[in-house]
Design a binder for these strands. Structure first.
Lengths: 189, 189
DNA sequence: GCCTGCGGTTAACGAACGTTAACCTCTGTC
DNA sequence: GACAGAGGTTAACGTTCGTTAACCGCAGGC
Protein backbone atom coordinates (compact mmCIF):
# COMPACT_ATOMS: atom_id res chain seq x y z
CA UNK A 1 0.00 0.00 0.00
CA UNK A 2 2.41 2.68 1.25
CA UNK A 3 0.02 5.41 0.14
CA UNK A 4 -0.91 5.80 3.79
CA UNK A 5 1.95 8.08 4.61
CA UNK A 6 0.69 10.85 6.78
CA UNK A 7 -0.73 13.71 4.78
CA UNK A 8 2.14 16.02 5.48
CA UNK A 9 4.73 13.72 3.92
CA UNK A 10 2.38 12.91 1.10
CA UNK A 11 1.98 16.60 0.31
CA UNK A 12 5.72 17.13 0.36
CA UNK A 13 6.28 14.23 -1.98
CA UNK A 14 3.59 15.20 -4.45
CA UNK A 15 4.53 18.88 -4.35
CA UNK A 16 8.12 17.98 -5.16
CA UNK A 17 6.97 16.19 -8.28
CA UNK A 18 4.77 19.07 -9.38
CA UNK A 19 7.40 21.73 -8.63
CA UNK A 20 9.93 19.72 -10.62
CA UNK A 21 7.56 19.54 -13.58
CA UNK A 22 6.29 23.09 -13.73
CA UNK A 23 8.31 25.16 -11.29
CA UNK A 24 7.25 26.56 -7.93
CA UNK A 25 5.38 29.51 -9.41
CA UNK A 26 3.79 27.29 -12.03
CA UNK A 27 1.98 25.15 -9.46
CA UNK A 28 -0.99 26.41 -7.42
CA UNK A 29 -2.06 25.19 -4.01
CA UNK A 30 -5.16 23.93 -5.77
CA UNK A 31 -2.97 21.78 -8.00
CA UNK A 32 -1.19 20.32 -4.99
CA UNK A 33 -4.44 19.64 -3.17
CA UNK A 34 -5.99 17.97 -6.20
CA UNK A 35 -2.93 15.76 -6.60
CA UNK A 36 -3.24 14.38 -3.08
CA UNK A 37 -7.03 14.09 -3.20
CA UNK A 38 -7.97 17.00 -0.99
CA UNK A 39 -8.95 20.37 -2.28
CA UNK A 40 -7.10 23.65 -2.17
CA UNK A 41 -7.20 25.36 1.20
CA UNK A 42 -7.03 22.08 3.13
CA UNK A 43 -3.29 22.35 2.64
CA UNK A 44 -3.27 25.07 5.28
CA UNK A 45 -4.16 22.49 7.92
CA UNK A 46 -0.67 21.08 7.40
CA UNK A 47 1.49 24.02 6.35
CA UNK A 48 1.50 27.72 7.15
CA UNK A 49 1.84 28.73 3.53
CA UNK A 50 2.80 27.52 0.09
CA UNK A 51 6.29 28.93 0.66
CA UNK A 52 6.50 26.77 3.76
CA UNK A 53 6.08 23.63 1.68
CA UNK A 54 9.02 24.61 -0.50
CA UNK A 55 11.12 25.65 2.48
CA UNK A 56 10.58 22.42 4.37
CA UNK A 57 11.35 20.43 1.25
CA UNK A 58 14.59 22.21 0.41
CA UNK A 59 15.93 22.37 3.95
CA UNK A 60 15.33 18.63 4.30
CA UNK A 61 17.19 17.83 1.09
CA UNK A 62 20.13 20.02 1.93
CA UNK A 63 20.45 18.53 5.39
CA UNK A 64 20.20 15.01 4.12
CA UNK A 65 22.79 15.51 1.40
CA UNK A 66 25.21 17.08 3.84
CA UNK A 67 24.89 14.76 6.81
CA UNK A 68 25.04 11.55 4.81
CA UNK A 69 27.96 13.03 2.85
CA UNK A 70 29.78 13.78 6.10
CA UNK A 71 29.25 10.26 7.34
CA UNK A 72 30.60 8.69 4.20
CA UNK A 73 33.65 10.92 4.26
CA UNK A 74 34.28 10.03 7.90
CA UNK A 75 34.39 6.35 7.03
CA UNK A 76 36.80 6.75 4.12
CA UNK A 77 40.52 6.19 4.64
CA UNK A 78 41.92 8.35 1.86
CA UNK A 79 40.85 11.41 -0.11
CA UNK A 80 40.37 9.23 -3.18
CA UNK A 81 38.12 6.89 -1.25
CA UNK A 82 36.23 9.82 0.22
CA UNK A 83 35.63 11.32 -3.21
CA UNK A 84 34.49 7.98 -4.58
CA UNK A 85 32.10 7.67 -1.64
CA UNK A 86 30.77 11.18 -2.19
CA UNK A 87 30.22 10.50 -5.87
CA UNK A 88 28.39 7.26 -5.09
CA UNK A 89 26.21 8.97 -2.53
CA UNK A 90 25.31 11.89 -4.75
CA UNK A 91 24.55 9.61 -7.68
CA UNK A 92 22.42 7.38 -5.50
CA UNK A 93 20.47 10.35 -4.21
CA UNK A 94 20.00 11.93 -7.62
CA UNK A 95 18.71 8.69 -9.09
CA UNK A 96 16.36 8.05 -6.17
CA UNK A 97 14.99 11.59 -5.90
CA UNK A 98 15.19 13.26 -9.29
CA UNK A 99 12.36 15.66 -8.44
CA UNK A 100 14.11 16.96 -5.37
CA UNK A 101 17.30 17.45 -7.34
CA UNK A 102 15.47 19.49 -9.95
CA UNK A 103 13.62 21.62 -7.42
CA UNK A 104 16.73 22.18 -5.38
CA UNK A 105 18.62 23.93 -8.10
CA UNK A 106 15.70 25.51 -9.88
CA UNK A 107 13.52 26.97 -7.15
CA UNK A 108 15.73 27.86 -4.20
CA UNK A 109 15.48 31.49 -5.27
CA UNK A 110 11.77 31.43 -4.49
CA UNK A 111 12.47 30.85 -0.81
CA UNK A 112 11.90 33.55 1.78
CA UNK A 113 15.15 35.08 3.04
CA UNK A 114 15.42 33.04 6.21
CA UNK A 115 14.98 29.64 4.60
CA UNK A 116 17.05 30.69 1.62
CA UNK A 117 20.01 31.52 3.82
CA UNK A 118 19.69 28.27 5.70
CA UNK A 119 19.67 26.28 2.46
CA UNK A 120 22.52 28.26 0.98
CA UNK A 121 24.60 27.72 4.05
CA UNK A 122 24.00 23.97 4.04
CA UNK A 123 24.82 23.84 0.34
CA UNK A 124 28.05 25.76 0.88
CA UNK A 125 29.02 23.30 3.56
CA UNK A 126 28.30 20.40 1.24
CA UNK A 127 30.36 21.98 -1.53
CA UNK A 128 33.21 22.46 0.90
CA UNK A 129 32.98 18.84 1.96
CA UNK A 130 33.82 17.92 -1.61
CA UNK A 131 36.30 20.75 -2.08
CA UNK A 132 38.27 19.76 1.03
CA UNK A 133 38.78 16.24 -0.24
CA UNK A 134 39.87 17.55 -3.63
CA UNK A 135 42.44 19.80 -1.96
CA UNK A 136 43.73 17.00 0.24
CA UNK A 137 44.32 15.03 -2.90
CA UNK A 138 45.98 17.93 -4.70
CA UNK A 139 47.32 20.59 -2.32
CA UNK A 140 48.10 22.95 -5.20
CA UNK A 141 44.40 23.36 -5.88
CA UNK A 142 42.98 26.73 -4.83
CA UNK A 143 39.79 26.81 -2.78
CA UNK A 144 37.89 28.60 -5.55
CA UNK A 145 38.96 26.08 -8.12
CA UNK A 146 38.10 23.13 -5.91
CA UNK A 147 34.65 24.57 -5.28
CA UNK A 148 34.08 25.12 -8.97
CA UNK A 149 35.07 21.51 -9.58
CA UNK A 150 32.55 20.33 -7.02
CA UNK A 151 29.82 22.40 -8.64
CA UNK A 152 30.69 20.99 -12.03
CA UNK A 153 30.52 17.44 -10.70
CA UNK A 154 27.11 18.19 -9.19
CA UNK A 155 25.96 19.53 -12.54
CA UNK A 156 27.08 16.34 -14.23
CA UNK A 157 25.40 14.05 -11.75
CA UNK A 158 22.28 16.18 -11.48
CA UNK A 159 21.75 15.86 -15.21
CA UNK A 160 20.09 12.52 -14.58
CA UNK A 161 16.51 13.85 -14.68
CA UNK A 162 17.18 15.08 -18.22
CA UNK A 163 18.02 11.67 -19.62
CA UNK A 164 16.15 8.76 -18.13
CA UNK A 165 16.45 6.32 -20.99
CA UNK A 166 18.97 4.06 -19.33
CA UNK A 167 18.13 1.44 -16.69
CA UNK A 168 18.95 2.72 -13.24
CA UNK A 169 21.96 0.53 -12.56
CA UNK A 170 23.53 1.41 -15.90
CA UNK A 171 22.89 5.07 -15.20
CA UNK A 172 24.46 4.80 -11.78
CA UNK A 173 27.60 3.27 -13.18
CA UNK A 174 27.77 5.73 -16.07
CA UNK A 175 27.36 8.84 -13.94
CA UNK A 176 29.76 7.68 -11.26
CA UNK A 177 32.38 6.82 -13.89
CA UNK A 178 32.01 10.14 -15.67
CA UNK A 179 32.07 12.11 -12.42
CA UNK A 180 35.26 10.40 -11.29
CA UNK A 181 36.75 10.95 -14.74
CA UNK A 182 35.90 14.63 -14.62
CA UNK A 183 37.66 14.94 -11.26
CA UNK A 184 40.75 13.21 -12.59
CA UNK A 185 40.30 9.95 -10.68
CA UNK A 186 40.82 6.74 -12.57
CA UNK A 187 37.57 4.87 -13.02
CA UNK A 188 37.54 1.22 -11.91
CA UNK A 189 36.52 -0.67 -15.04
CA UNK B 1 27.11 53.03 -25.59
CA UNK B 2 25.63 49.85 -27.07
CA UNK B 3 22.48 50.33 -25.01
CA UNK B 4 20.86 51.53 -28.21
CA UNK B 5 20.06 48.07 -29.40
CA UNK B 6 16.60 48.08 -30.83
CA UNK B 7 13.99 47.57 -28.17
CA UNK B 8 13.15 44.06 -29.25
CA UNK B 9 16.66 42.76 -28.66
CA UNK B 10 16.94 44.76 -25.49
CA UNK B 11 13.77 43.16 -24.15
CA UNK B 12 15.00 39.68 -25.03
CA UNK B 13 18.29 40.30 -23.30
CA UNK B 14 16.81 41.76 -20.15
CA UNK B 15 14.04 39.17 -19.99
CA UNK B 16 16.62 36.40 -20.19
CA UNK B 17 18.37 37.83 -17.15
CA UNK B 18 15.14 38.12 -15.19
CA UNK B 19 13.87 34.69 -16.20
CA UNK B 20 17.20 33.20 -15.15
CA UNK B 21 16.96 34.89 -11.76
CA UNK B 22 13.35 34.24 -10.85
CA UNK B 23 11.92 31.83 -13.40
CA UNK B 24 9.46 32.55 -16.20
CA UNK B 25 6.42 32.50 -13.93
CA UNK B 26 8.21 34.57 -11.34
CA UNK B 27 8.65 37.53 -13.66
CA UNK B 28 5.76 39.77 -14.74
CA UNK B 29 5.54 41.79 -17.93
CA UNK B 30 5.61 44.81 -15.65
CA UNK B 31 8.98 43.65 -14.31
CA UNK B 32 10.35 43.29 -17.83
CA UNK B 33 9.03 46.68 -18.88
CA UNK B 34 10.46 48.37 -15.82
CA UNK B 35 13.86 46.78 -16.45
CA UNK B 36 14.09 48.24 -19.94
CA UNK B 37 12.66 51.61 -18.94
CA UNK B 38 9.20 51.32 -20.47
CA UNK B 39 6.17 50.31 -18.57
CA UNK B 40 4.15 47.12 -18.71
CA UNK B 41 1.87 46.89 -21.69
CA UNK B 42 4.33 48.63 -24.00
CA UNK B 43 5.90 45.22 -24.40
CA UNK B 44 2.97 44.25 -26.60
CA UNK B 45 4.19 46.69 -29.25
CA UNK B 46 7.09 44.29 -29.78
CA UNK B 47 5.78 40.84 -28.90
CA UNK B 48 2.41 39.12 -29.21
CA UNK B 49 2.55 37.80 -25.65
CA UNK B 50 4.81 37.06 -22.73
CA UNK B 51 5.04 33.46 -23.93
CA UNK B 52 6.27 34.79 -27.25
CA UNK B 53 9.27 36.38 -25.57
CA UNK B 54 10.25 33.07 -24.03
CA UNK B 55 9.63 31.18 -27.25
CA UNK B 56 11.74 33.49 -29.37
CA UNK B 57 14.51 33.36 -26.80
CA UNK B 58 14.64 29.58 -26.52
CA UNK B 59 14.29 28.85 -30.22
CA UNK B 60 17.15 31.24 -30.94
CA UNK B 61 19.44 29.57 -28.38
CA UNK B 62 18.69 26.09 -29.59
CA UNK B 63 19.30 27.03 -33.19
CA UNK B 64 22.54 28.80 -32.39
CA UNK B 65 23.90 25.92 -30.30
CA UNK B 66 23.07 23.42 -33.01
CA UNK B 67 24.23 25.25 -36.11
CA UNK B 68 27.52 26.39 -34.64
CA UNK B 69 28.04 22.89 -33.25
CA UNK B 70 27.44 21.40 -36.70
CA UNK B 71 29.96 23.76 -38.24
CA UNK B 72 32.64 22.92 -35.73
CA UNK B 73 32.11 19.20 -36.21
CA UNK B 74 32.31 19.60 -39.97
CA UNK B 75 35.73 21.19 -39.68
CA UNK B 76 37.15 18.52 -37.37
CA UNK B 77 39.19 15.67 -38.81
CA UNK B 78 38.60 13.02 -36.16
CA UNK B 79 35.95 12.15 -33.60
CA UNK B 80 38.31 13.22 -30.83
CA UNK B 81 38.88 16.57 -32.48
CA UNK B 82 35.14 16.95 -33.07
CA UNK B 83 34.37 16.29 -29.41
CA UNK B 84 37.04 18.71 -28.28
CA UNK B 85 35.56 21.32 -30.60
CA UNK B 86 32.06 20.67 -29.29
CA UNK B 87 33.25 20.98 -25.71
CA UNK B 88 35.04 24.25 -26.48
CA UNK B 89 31.98 25.64 -28.21
CA UNK B 90 29.56 24.68 -25.45
CA UNK B 91 31.88 26.04 -22.76
CA UNK B 92 32.32 29.27 -24.67
CA UNK B 93 28.57 29.69 -25.06
CA UNK B 94 27.79 28.84 -21.45
CA UNK B 95 30.34 31.34 -20.18
CA UNK B 96 29.17 34.07 -22.53
CA UNK B 97 25.42 33.53 -21.98
CA UNK B 98 24.84 32.07 -18.54
CA UNK B 99 21.31 33.45 -18.36
CA UNK B 100 20.28 31.74 -21.58
CA UNK B 101 21.76 28.48 -20.36
CA UNK B 102 19.76 28.67 -17.15
CA UNK B 103 16.50 29.57 -18.84
CA UNK B 104 16.97 26.92 -21.47
CA UNK B 105 16.95 24.04 -19.07
CA UNK B 106 14.67 25.54 -16.47
CA UNK B 107 11.80 27.07 -18.38
CA UNK B 108 11.34 25.17 -21.60
CA UNK B 109 8.34 23.45 -20.01
CA UNK B 110 6.54 26.79 -19.92
CA UNK B 111 6.52 27.01 -23.70
CA UNK B 112 3.34 26.53 -25.72
CA UNK B 113 3.20 23.18 -27.47
CA UNK B 114 4.36 24.39 -30.85
CA UNK B 115 7.45 26.21 -29.66
CA UNK B 116 8.17 23.47 -27.14
CA UNK B 117 8.29 20.84 -29.83
CA UNK B 118 10.50 22.97 -32.02
CA UNK B 119 12.95 23.50 -29.15
CA UNK B 120 12.88 19.87 -28.11
CA UNK B 121 13.58 18.77 -31.63
CA UNK B 122 16.54 21.13 -31.98
CA UNK B 123 17.88 19.95 -28.63
CA UNK B 124 17.56 16.33 -29.63
CA UNK B 125 19.49 17.06 -32.78
CA UNK B 126 22.22 18.77 -30.76
CA UNK B 127 22.43 15.83 -28.36
CA UNK B 128 22.75 13.47 -31.30
CA UNK B 129 25.52 15.60 -32.77
CA UNK B 130 27.51 14.81 -29.62
CA UNK B 131 26.31 11.23 -29.38
CA UNK B 132 27.32 10.46 -32.96
CA UNK B 133 30.89 11.57 -32.34
CA UNK B 134 31.03 9.51 -29.15
CA UNK B 135 29.88 6.42 -31.06
CA UNK B 136 32.35 6.98 -33.86
CA UNK B 137 35.05 7.00 -31.21
CA UNK B 138 33.72 3.90 -29.48
CA UNK B 139 31.49 1.77 -31.71
CA UNK B 140 30.47 -0.45 -28.79
CA UNK B 141 28.60 2.46 -27.23
CA UNK B 142 24.83 2.18 -27.47
CA UNK B 143 22.84 5.17 -28.67
CA UNK B 144 21.07 5.54 -25.33
CA UNK B 145 24.33 5.52 -23.45
CA UNK B 146 25.96 8.00 -25.77
CA UNK B 147 23.00 10.36 -25.39
CA UNK B 148 23.14 10.06 -21.62
CA UNK B 149 26.84 10.89 -21.75
CA UNK B 150 26.11 14.00 -23.81
CA UNK B 151 23.47 15.10 -21.32
CA UNK B 152 25.87 14.58 -18.45
CA UNK B 153 28.54 16.64 -20.18
CA UNK B 154 26.00 19.42 -20.74
CA UNK B 155 25.12 19.30 -17.07
CA UNK B 156 28.74 19.66 -16.13
CA UNK B 157 29.39 22.58 -18.45
CA UNK B 158 26.06 24.25 -17.70
CA UNK B 159 26.98 24.36 -14.02
CA UNK B 160 28.93 27.51 -14.70
CA UNK B 161 26.17 29.92 -13.60
CA UNK B 162 26.27 28.25 -10.18
CA UNK B 163 29.90 29.03 -9.48
CA UNK B 164 31.21 32.26 -10.93
CA UNK B 165 34.09 32.80 -8.54
CA UNK B 166 36.82 31.96 -11.03
CA UNK B 167 38.09 34.34 -13.74
CA UNK B 168 36.56 33.48 -17.06
CA UNK B 169 39.66 32.06 -18.72
CA UNK B 170 40.39 29.80 -15.74
CA UNK B 171 36.77 28.66 -15.77
CA UNK B 172 36.93 27.92 -19.48
CA UNK B 173 40.00 25.78 -19.05
CA UNK B 174 38.62 24.01 -15.97
CA UNK B 175 35.26 23.13 -17.49
CA UNK B 176 36.74 22.01 -20.79
CA UNK B 177 39.26 19.81 -19.00
CA UNK B 178 36.65 18.25 -16.74
CA UNK B 179 34.22 17.69 -19.61
CA UNK B 180 36.88 15.94 -21.67
CA UNK B 181 37.88 13.91 -18.63
CA UNK B 182 34.30 12.85 -18.03
CA UNK B 183 34.05 11.66 -21.63
CA UNK B 184 37.25 9.65 -21.31
CA UNK B 185 39.39 11.89 -23.51
CA UNK B 186 42.83 12.77 -22.27
CA UNK B 187 43.04 16.39 -21.33
CA UNK B 188 45.93 18.38 -22.82
CA UNK B 189 47.76 19.71 -19.79
C1' DG C 1 -22.69 11.13 26.48
C1' DC C 2 -20.65 15.40 25.98
C1' DC C 3 -16.82 18.04 24.13
C1' DT C 4 -12.55 19.06 22.00
C1' DG C 5 -9.76 19.28 18.20
C1' DC C 6 -8.14 17.42 13.85
C1' DG C 7 -8.82 17.42 9.05
C1' DG C 8 -11.76 18.32 5.85
C1' DT C 9 -15.37 21.45 3.10
C1' DT C 10 -17.15 25.79 0.33
C1' DA C 11 -17.39 30.79 -0.04
C1' DA C 12 -15.17 34.90 -0.20
C1' DC C 13 -11.27 38.32 -0.17
C1' DG C 14 -7.82 41.32 -2.06
C1' DA C 15 -3.85 41.37 -4.82
C1' DA C 16 -1.47 40.44 -8.92
C1' DC C 17 -1.31 38.79 -13.37
C1' DG C 18 -1.60 38.89 -18.72
C1' DT C 19 -3.89 41.35 -21.93
C1' DT C 20 -6.84 44.89 -24.36
C1' DA C 21 -8.53 49.50 -25.19
C1' DA C 22 -8.22 54.21 -25.88
C1' DC C 23 -5.43 57.78 -26.30
C1' DC C 24 -1.21 60.66 -27.05
C1' DT C 25 3.23 62.26 -29.20
C1' DC C 26 6.49 62.26 -32.00
C1' DT C 27 8.92 61.48 -36.72
C1' DG C 28 9.30 60.95 -41.46
C1' DT C 29 6.73 61.10 -46.10
C1' DC C 30 4.11 62.95 -49.85
C1' DG D 1 1.49 71.03 -43.63
C1' DA D 2 -1.69 67.07 -43.41
C1' DC D 3 -1.11 62.32 -42.26
C1' DA D 4 0.23 57.64 -41.05
C1' DG D 5 2.42 54.69 -38.27
C1' DA D 6 5.59 53.47 -34.64
C1' DG D 7 6.14 53.39 -29.82
C1' DG D 8 4.85 55.00 -25.86
C1' DT D 9 1.11 56.13 -21.91
C1' DT D 10 -2.81 55.08 -18.29
C1' DA D 11 -7.16 52.81 -17.29
C1' DA D 12 -9.65 48.87 -17.19
C1' DC D 13 -10.85 43.89 -18.11
C1' DG D 14 -11.37 39.16 -16.48
C1' DT D 15 -8.84 35.45 -14.35
C1' DT D 16 -6.17 33.24 -11.17
C1' DC D 17 -3.65 33.22 -7.19
C1' DG D 18 -2.62 32.63 -2.01
C1' DT D 19 -4.99 33.02 1.94
C1' DT D 20 -8.77 33.54 5.46
C1' DA D 21 -13.33 32.68 7.34
C1' DA D 22 -17.06 30.00 8.67
C1' DC D 23 -18.73 25.77 9.03
C1' DC D 24 -19.02 20.55 9.53
C1' DG D 25 -18.27 15.49 10.81
C1' DC D 26 -16.09 12.43 13.36
C1' DA D 27 -12.79 10.02 16.75
C1' DG D 28 -11.10 9.69 21.42
C1' DG D 29 -10.81 11.09 26.35
C1' DC D 30 -13.13 12.17 30.47
Amino acid sequence: MERTLDRRSQILEVAARLFAERGFHGVSVGDIGRAVGISGPALYKHFDSKDDVLAEMLVAISERLLTEGQERVAQAHSPDAALAALVDWHVEFALAQPSLIVVQDRDWQSLAVEARERVRSLQREYVDLWADQLRRRDPDLTTDRAQAMAHAAFGLINSTPHSSRLPQSAMRELLAGMALGSLGLKSLS
